[in-house]
């Protein structure tokens, strides 16, 4: 990275200095060139799902940069494959080959438009307004975690001292806005539930 000085370090190790010190020969803020297609800094366009589109954009909007980047990119690729070769030679063995395979595969940058599907079994929390200032909290998905809904509804009612009832297939409605409390309470009460499986949907119309 060229953005910051290696300052007074590197004397007896190849580690970065910590803290990193601002360079005196650069004026901040640094102006990073972002790609108009993938939105990443243009040096990362190689990892875009559509590198060709990125290249096209760069060639049209910033011809000078295009030359610089495409030249650099080719060099990098060559260097990388050379390095891979070396690694293999040094370590040899099946382990290494396996590692390389996994490291070569699958991972891809998503285009901004690509949205992830909701996981099955997600617990969804939302609030809905009742009149002007009152809310109820709707919890769905607890059942798919093997939680007894009747017990859960009763537990919530006792915990928040309010009405709480089973209203549907896998839906509990609690009177009042207790959504934020539930985010902490559910994983606490049912340790098997992973925090990441709880989705906060905000306010929903019912």
């Amino acid at each position: 990275m060229a953005a910051v000085a290696d300052a007074n370090t590197e004397v007896n190790s190849r580690d970065f200095p910590n803290p990193i010190l601002p360079r005196t020969d650069i004026t901040y803020p640094i102006n990073v060139l972002y790609c108009g297609v993938c939105s990443l800094p243009t040096e990362y366009c190689d990892y875009s799902p559509e590198p060709e589109k990125c290249k096209e954009w760069l060639r049209q909007s910033l011809p000078d940069q295009f030359k610089a980047v495409s030249a650099g990119g080719a060099d990098d690729a060559a260097a990388a494959s050379a390095k891979d070769g070396e690694e293999g030679d040094q370590d040899g063995g099946d382990d290494d080959r396996k590692k390389k395979q996994t490291r070569g595969g699958k991972a891809r940058v998503k285009l901004p438009a690509a949205e992830e599907k909701k996981k099955p079994g997600a617990i969804k929390l939302s609030i809905a307004s009742r009149g002007k200032k009152k809310y109820v909290t709707v919890v769905t998905g607890l059942g798919s975690h093997g939680i007894d809904l009747k017990v859960a509804a009763k537990f919530f009612g006792q915990k928040f001292a309010c009405g709480s009832s089973l209203t549907g297939d896998d839906e509990i409605v609690i009177q009042g806005d207790v959504k934020d409390d539930l985010l902490d309470l559910i994983p606490e009460k049912w340790p098997d539930v992973d925090e990441d499986q709880i989705e906060d949907l905000g306010e929903q119309k019912r």
Binding site: M1, V4, F16, I20, P22, Y28, I30, Y47, R103
Partner: peptide
Amino acid sequence: KYPFILPWMQVDKGAIK
């Protein structure tokens, strides 16, 4: 804009993706 704020950890090329 200000890359010096946090300490750096550099990953190798293979880890980028």
